[in-house]
Design a protein around this nucleic acid. Sequence first.
DNA 1: TTTCCATTCATACTTTAGGGTGATTTTATC
DNA 2: GATAAAATCACCCTAAAGTATGAATGGAAA
Lengths: 157, 157
Amino acid sequence: MKWQAITRNKQNILYGLSLALLLFLLKWLELRFLIIHHAMEIYIGMVALVFTALGIWLALKLARPKVETVIVEKPVPVTPAATFSLNTPELDRLGLSSRELEVLQLMADGLSNQEIAGRLFVSLNTVKTHASRLFEKLDVKRRTQAIDKAKRLSIIP
Amino acid sequence: MKWQAITRNKQNILYGLSLALLLFLLKWLELRFLIIHHAMEIYIGMVALVFTALGIWLALKLARPKVETVIVEKPVPVTPAATFSLNTPELDRLGLSSRELEVLQLMADGLSNQEIAGRLFVSLNTVKTHASRLFEKLDVKRRTQAIDKAKRLSIIP
DNA sequence: TTTCCATTCATACTTTAGGGTGATTTTATC
DNA sequence: GATAAAATCACCCTAAAGTATGAATGGAAA
């Protein structure tokens, strides 16, 4: 801002000096022609041209051209991240308990019933009970069917 | 920015006008002393002013505003085609036979060994043999592990 | 207080899966 | 023709999965 103010002042000073110079030149030419008393029309013509040029110069210097901005939107295809999204409505519809869902996921991970029991800190019998209930709710006969169906329904990832 | 430009132009115009006014006053005072003897100088002074204004007007008329185009990229979500792409190098590395791969896929679909046998027109023993070989090559202990691993490796969809 | 549901556990039994061993046939390559 | 691999099949045995029945406990809702 301060720098801009100094620059502007400098511009105005230059403007003033150039104008003073031109006036001096004009006066000097005026005196020369007045003394000689020749080609008065030429003198006037030159004055006209000189001051026209001065006007143009001033206008170009002072007037800042407007910049018109045109915004063009370009569609860019974006592939969304491939993430698993739990199908909550389907899960609610099936009515699986949280324990049943846990067992299902561990089945899909390839664990045996005994291993699942160890993972969940329960007995093998408990796991079998949950599995049985799970198959009932999913209307399947075996774990491979349960896993296949659950993935199709987006209940497990 | 635009407002600032207008304000600056206005300032310069005012500056110019005030200077012109001063010049006019100067000329007028000068004329008061010279009017009797120098009618010509008054005429020339007016010519100078008029042509300066003409120059300014011309410059402003000729100046054309610049047009700048800005391209803005807009993200558009693209639904990826949910297609399975067989991981052929991995399949080659594991060395699964075509029959073994068939059995694997039907396992993943939830079929029992007996059902797979019926689907492929072979005996239950044959299916068990293929399954056994399959587990060996995949280094797994049970079908759920085989399925899980095969999906991870993109051998089956 | 009663009822319902989830969770846990047990037992007995049946079915299926999985491992081991061996054999025969078919297919492809040299 | 010889060889190796894939495919097919059988039999025996064990392990694991799956079914049926029953019981106990705790928490939430009516």
